[in-house]
Design a protein around this nucleic acid. Structure first.
Lengths: 153, 153
DNA sequence: TCCAGTCTCTTGAACCTTCAATGAAAATGC
DNA sequence: GCATTTTCATTGAAGGTTCAAGAGACTGGA
């Protein structure tokens, strides 16, 4: 464990500061381009994008929240707005009365189709244009290991 | 540039999803431990920590905002709250009437001293306990390259 | 069957961030 | 000098997130 080592040494700090910069700045950068392109936040885009990949383009709220890296409460508020705007629909799960299923509407699919190209350009220009194939794999692998630690903490 | 390539291929997606997971989950994880320990958000902690490292523990608001990876407006609101709570003080810059200088108070220094050990433990357990020395350097380097792209985009 | 405990989701309030507008001071250009 | 533009910071409103509470539905053991 990490019970000793009161502070970060220089090498650690030299990695920590950029990492914090990344996690604090990337969401804003993604928000900004999606917001100006199609009026969605990155989280809203993620909700629609995850739904599109799902079986029947339908998913339980809790599963959706997990895959979107957000709390159920956050998703619930966002889903209400997306529903008001006609991008998704919610209905009671027929087999488990506690659950709510969310499904993509035609309008939501359309919006996603309009949003995707610009979003991909943004992601490429910020990430994938910078790194080699090997680096991308290493980066993804490291991110996965950190996420695993966050989830079990 | 990235004008072609309509969507991410499997390898890219396999890196992108964990990276998004990281940037969406890490701030919340840091917030949570700092909030329960000393009642600070990670951004507030960052403001105090950056100030502590500064000359005279004093810094111009815009420089502080930049180093804290936040907007000036965000910093201004946060600084008002931190000032109300006695953790920092603001005063007009004597040499440039447009600028405001923020300085750490004794109370802020004390709070930081109480917050740091727990925060470092959190950071170590999420990041540095997972990676080798070499990996840490690679991770920091990659983060730095992405931040550079965000800033010039 | 009953009921206490758990799971799923929503809600409203508190809080925080963003955005646009504003004001004041300094720099620039004529 | 004077007007214009730019820089620095704050503010209030609008909108989003978090947190705690609560309603409804399932589960398992008595």
């Amino acid at each position: 464990m990490s019970d000793e080592a009161p502070w970060l040494d220089d090498e650690e700090m030299a990695a920590w500061l950029p990492l914090i910069g990344l996690v604090m700045r990337l969401p804003g950068a993604l928000d900004q381009s999606l917001r100006s392109d199609v009026g969605l936040s990155h989280f809203e885009y993620g909700v629609l994008a995850v739904l599109e990949q799902a079986e029947e383009q339908t998913m339980r709220m809790s599963d959706l929240a997990y895959l979107c890296n957000g709390s159920l409460s956050r998703l619930s508020h966002v889903a209400r707005r997306l529903e008001d705007d006609g991008h998704l629909r919610r209905y009671a799960c027929p087999t488990d009365g506690r659950s709510t299923l969310a499904t993509l509407t035609d309008g939501g699919r359309e919006l996603l189709k309009n949003a995707a190209p610009g979003h991909v350009r943004t992601v490429r220009s910020l990430i994938f244009d910078e790194f080699s194939r090997d680096e991308v794999r290493v980066l993804g692998d490291m991110a996965k290991r950190i996420v695993a630690r966050i989830q079990t903490s």
